[in-house]
């Protein structure tokens, strides 16, 4: 199976409250159609790794960071960052990726319908009923004309999932998409999400702090461990997958 992501010795150094935190990814390969879960406790850098994978966060150093969305021509993401080709990264995101943010990340001035349709509109995709069908599957059809401000947290998450899937991207990333809802709702939402992803043959990368939960959902866990650094005052958070 062809690799979508191939990361070798990717690092992101962050300074938080005086302590240096270094996210280290010695090796990470994600194949097309895989369901991968980045698992670890809060603050270990799951979201940071997702941000780097979705190309909205520049790594500090890289040995290899290759993205091959269609499995054919691999793109050197690090080179794009190095040469400030942000619009190239934008193109990759809008064509090949959907991203479900932890708290939805909906635009407050757009209705639910417009929020879901946003990624399709950017790609000039015509209205073929996808938005309505997704809304029906996710149980938010009656909310389509409402603004996100009046939706419940669970409903917002469903809208965010719908937006991430609406333009049928080959890869969907989700940052603890059910963290803000109760376990019953969480299971239901994730079930629908993975079901839709399966239906569309989408590669799914999810960040979660609950290993048991993602294993139950049939996802491959990529675990995080903390490792002491040779440098003083640096904490290494290592994802090995």
């Amino acid at each position: 199976m062809s690799l979508v992501f191939k990361l070798r010795d990717v690092r992101k150094l962050r300074i938080a409250e005086g302590a240096n935190f270094c996210l280290v990814v010695p090796q990470l390969d994600i194949a097309a159609g895989e369901k991968v879960a980045l698992v670890g406790e809060s603050g270990c850098g799951k979201s940071t790794l997702l941000d780097m994978l979705v190309m909205v966060l520049r790594p500090s150093s890289v040995n290899e960071f290759v993205f091959a969305p269609d499995g054919k021509v691999p793109l050197d993401v690090w080179l794009a960052w190095e040469t400030s080709r942000w619009n190239v990264l934008s193109d990759l995101r809008k064509q090949y990726m959907g991203y479900v943010l932890q708290t939805g990340g909906l635009l407050p001035f757009l209705t639910v319908w417009d929020n879901i349709n946003l990624s399709r509109q950017i790609l000039s995709m015509p209205d073929d009923g996808t938005v309505r069908a997704l809304a029906k599957t996710l149980g938010i059809r009656r909310q389509l004309n409402k603004l996100p401000g009046i939706l419940s947290v669970g409903e917002r998450q469903r809208v965010a999932i719908a937006r991430a899937l609406a333009h049928r991207p080959p890869i969907v990333l989700a940052d603890e998409p059910t963290a803000a809802v109760d376990p019953v709702q969480a299971k239901k939402i994730m079930g629908v999400f993975l079901g839709l992803a399966e239906e569309l043959g989408t590669t799914v990368i999810v960040a979660s702090h609950n290993t048991q939960f993602v294993v139950q959902l049939g996802m491959r866990p990529v675990r995080q461990i903390f490792r002491p650094s040779k440098k003083k005052g640096v904490i290494n958070s290592v994802f090995q997958g």
Binding site: V54, V56, W86, N87, S90, D91, R93, K94, Q95, Y99, L101, G105, L106, L107, P108, F109, L118, S119, I122, L123, R163
Partner: peptide, 13 residues
């Protein structure tokens, strides 16, 4: 936040 979301969904600079 809104501008970041627009960036995320593929808006150009």
């Amino acid at each position: 936040r809104e501008l970041s979301v627009l960036r995320l969904v593929g808006f150009y600079t």
